[in-house]
Every structure is written in structure tokens, then in C-alpha cells.
Amino acid sequence: MKTVTGLFDDYTDASSAVSALESAGVPSNDISIVSNNADNRHGDHSNAGEDAGTGAGIGAVVGGAGGLLTGLGLMAIPGVGPVVAAGWLAATAAGAVAGAVAGGAAGGIIGAMTSSGVSEADAHVYAEGVRRGGSLVTAKVDDALVPEAEAILKRSNWVDPAQRRVAYNEQGWTKFDDTLDPYGPEQIKQERGRYRRPGL
């Protein structure tokens, strides 16, 4: 088993990638999605704001077409803010945050990714990408399916982590910091505008 991960600027691209991975034979319980919900696109049926400091568990179910996406729940991640999430990565991050002492919660999303095989450098980019409004899809796949799973993520308009790291570094960013305020809807809109492909 190997972990494959893709960051997406658009939730629609991320959900398409999840569906394509499921269609390719990756079991739903081996796939995770964590998507910024600062714009309340999925509603606000949780106490995510109250639990941002303590680490909320996965809350109310929100709609989806089937498979993993039917199990989306609301939670909060320190430094990221409200997210909709489903799957093993979300559960691992929520558990790590809930058990962390104050100031040590960075282990939540970063630790969940690195313990599953994502490099620490990429984990910081992915966490920052979600903080800035993106969606993260992570899947544990059999070695034989790795090339197909990676191709699915790339076809679904994934973000190249090396290029995004350079873009973030040019803005003075060095790593994900869970003590920073989450991005609000207007900041996210501006951030998405930086990377929007011409014609979209």
C-alpha cells in the first residue's frame, strides 16, 4: 500500500477525483477528503467554531452522491478553520487534535499525513492549501494501482505541490502554522484568483 495525495483549488475537482478513485477500485474506506468550508458551501450544522481550539470530531452528515462523499461531516482544524471531511485522514487528524495539548495540535493534520507516508514538506503545503480554501484528497492504494491513482489526481486538476510551495514562499510563507487565523471567504476568493487558469 502507498499513499497518494492531491491538493485541489476547487472542491468540485476534488470530489470528481474521489469518485474516479472509487470507480477505479479504490475502496471508499481507503480514501479521505478534507475541504475548507469557510464559505459554508456545505452548511454550518456543527459547533466547528466553538471546537476549533479543542479539536472537534466529525459532526453532522452533509449530502453527497454516494460512496465516501455521503459521509462528509463538519469539523474544525486549528489554523485551517471549518472543514468538511470524511475518511481515515480526517479521523486521524481529529483524534490527534483532540488528544493534543494546547500548542501541540499541529500534529493533527501534519502528523496524520506524515504518518501515512506524505513527506513533511508536502504535508505543510497541503495543510496550507486547505487553509487557503483548497481541498485535499488522500488515498491508500495497492502498489499496482499507484500509477492509475496518481493519473486520476492529475487529470482532476490537482495542484503541483512543488509549484505551489514556490508560490507560497514568494509570499513569505515557510510552513503551515496552526496558530494563524484561518482564511475568511474574501481571502479565499482572492487566493483562488491567483491560481485560476485563464478562461475559467
Rank of each mutant, 00 (worst) to 15 (best):
residue 1 M to A: 14
residue 3 T to D: 08
residue 7 L to G: 02
residue 8 F to N: 01
residue 8 F to C: 09
residue 8 F to K: 00
residue 8 F to A: 01
residue 9 D to H: 15
residue 9 D to P: 13
residue 10 D to R: 13
residue 10 D to N: 13
residue 11 Y to L: 00
residue 12 T to W: 12
residue 15 S to T: 12
residue 20 A to F: 05
residue 21 L to K: 07
residue 21 L to V: 04
residue 28 S to Q: 07
residue 33 I to G: 00
residue 35 S to P: 04
residue 37 N to Q: 08
residue 38 A to D: 00
residue 40 N to Y: 09
residue 41 R to D: 00
residue 46 S to F: 01
residue 46 S to M: 01
residue 46 S to K: 03
residue 47 N to L: 12
residue 48 A to D: 01
residue 50 E to I: 09
residue 51 D to L: 11
residue 55 G to N: 01
residue 55 G to F: 02
residue 55 G to L: 01
residue 56 A to V: 02
residue 56 A to K: 02
residue 60 A to Y: 09
residue 60 A to W: 10
residue 61 V to M: 13
residue 61 V to T: 14
residue 61 V to S: 14
residue 63 G to N: 11
residue 63 G to M: 08
residue 65 A to Y: 03
residue 65 A to Q: 11
residue 65 A to V: 07
residue 67 G to I: 01
residue 68 L to V: 02
residue 69 L to D: 02
residue 70 T to L: 05
residue 70 T to S: 09
residue 70 T to I: 04
residue 70 T to R: 03
residue 71 G to H: 08
residue 72 L to F: 03
residue 74 L to Y: 05
residue 74 L to P: 05
residue 75 M to Q: 07
residue 77 I to S: 03
residue 78 P to A: 12
residue 80 V to S: 06
residue 83 V to H: 00
residue 87 G to R: 05
residue 88 W to N: 07
residue 88 W to C: 03
residue 89 L to N: 04
residue 91 A to T: 14
residue 91 A to F: 11
residue 92 T to P: 03
residue 93 A to R: 05
residue 96 A to I: 13
residue 98 A to C: 13
residue 102 A to K: 14
residue 103 G to E: 06
residue 103 G to N: 06
residue 106 A to T: 14
residue 107 G to F: 05
residue 108 G to I: 05
residue 109 I to C: 11
residue 114 T to R: 06
residue 117 G to V: 10
residue 118 V to C: 05
residue 121 A to T: 14
residue 121 A to I: 12
residue 121 A to Y: 07
residue 124 H to F: 02
residue 124 H to Y: 04
residue 125 V to K: 05
residue 125 V to F: 03
residue 125 V to I: 08
residue 125 V to Y: 03
residue 127 A to E: 02
residue 129 G to F: 01
residue 131 R to V: 07
residue 132 R to P: 02
residue 132 R to N: 10
residue 134 G to H: 08
residue 136 L to N: 01
residue 137 V to Q: 03
residue 138 T to A: 12
residue 138 T to Y: 05
residue 139 A to T: 06
residue 139 A to Q: 09
residue 139 A to L: 04
residue 140 K to W: 09
residue 141 V to Q: 07
residue 142 D to M: 13
residue 144 A to Y: 10
residue 144 A to T: 11
residue 146 V to K: 12
residue 147 P to Y: 07
residue 154 K to A: 14
residue 154 K to N: 11
residue 157 N to W: 04
residue 157 N to H: 12
residue 158 W to L: 15
residue 160 D to I: 08
residue 161 P to M: 07
residue 161 P to Y: 06
residue 161 P to C: 09
residue 165 R to Q: 11
residue 168 Y to C: 03
residue 168 Y to K: 09
residue 168 Y to A: 10
residue 169 N to G: 15
residue 170 E to N: 15
residue 171 Q to W: 11
residue 172 G to F: 06
residue 172 G to W: 11
residue 173 W to L: 07
residue 173 W to Y: 10
residue 174 T to M: 10
residue 174 T to A: 12
residue 176 F to P: 01
residue 176 F to L: 08
residue 176 F to C: 02
residue 177 D to T: 00
residue 178 D to I: 13
residue 179 T to W: 10
residue 180 L to N: 10
residue 182 P to D: 00
residue 184 G to H: 07
residue 184 G to F: 02
residue 184 G to W: 03
residue 186 E to D: 13
residue 188 I to R: 00
residue 188 I to W: 00
residue 188 I to C: 04
residue 190 Q to I: 15
residue 192 R to Q: 14
residue 198 P to R: 13
residue 199 G to W: 12
residue 199 G to M: 12
residue 200 L to W: 15
residue 200 L to M: 15
